[in-house]
């Protein structure tokens, strides 16, 4: 199991996977948007999206858990 964490504070611009999707390592999970910059957040490990902790429009802080991949 691996946790995907936000590496900067910002708004969730797009969630690009769904719960139950199988994902590969380095695949984007969400795209964060902050201060005119979009940063894709990818999972480090392959697996299945067990839980999405955020929805589009949510605000996340640096270090917040975005998704759990199993």
């Amino acid at each position: 199991m691996t946790e995907v964490k936000a590496n900067m504070a910002g708004n969730v611009w797009k969630v690009v996977v769904k719960q139950g999707d199988s994902v590969e390592a380095d695949q984007d999970v969400v795209i964060l948007e902050s201060m005119k910059m979009e940063i894709p957040i990818a999972t480090e490990e392959a697996g299945t999206v067990k839980e999405l902790k955020v929805a589009e429009g949510d605000f996340v802080n640096e270090g917040d858990i975005i998704a759990i991949i199993d």
């Binding site: 590496n7 900067m8 504070a9 910002g10 902050s34 201060m35 910059m37 940063i39 802080n61 640096e62």
Partner: peptide
């Protein structure tokens, strides 16, 4: 912003 990655740092 983060001085190494240049990622925004609101707060």
């Amino acid at each position: 912003e983060d001085p190494k990655t240049f990622f925004p740092s609101p707060g």
